[in-house]
Amino acid sequence: MTTDANNSLEQDLLFAIVKEKYGHLLTDEQLAGVRNAIVGQRDVFRPIREYRLTNGVEPFSTFTPFRGD
């Protein structure tokens, strides 16, 4: 499959998840808006996915174990 086709399948699957969770709340018009937004989000993910990071680069937020006393 081409990248575009993969992307399209991914957006279809993501939309299916949203529709399953929230579809009962939304009209057809609103669901169409959700779908458009999900398709638009491809452009947000693309440069993030394309940027290569080495294995040791951690999320920029630190987990600290908690001890109450």
Binding site: V18, G33, N36, F45, R49
Partner: peptide, 18 residues
């Protein structure tokens, strides 16, 4: 509708962590 808040959960965890 074009900026639907309901599209926001449609982000893979790996994209957020990245």
């Amino acid at each position: 509708h074009g900026r639907s808040p309901y599209a926001r959960p449609a982000v893979l965890a790996t994209d957020y962590i990245k």
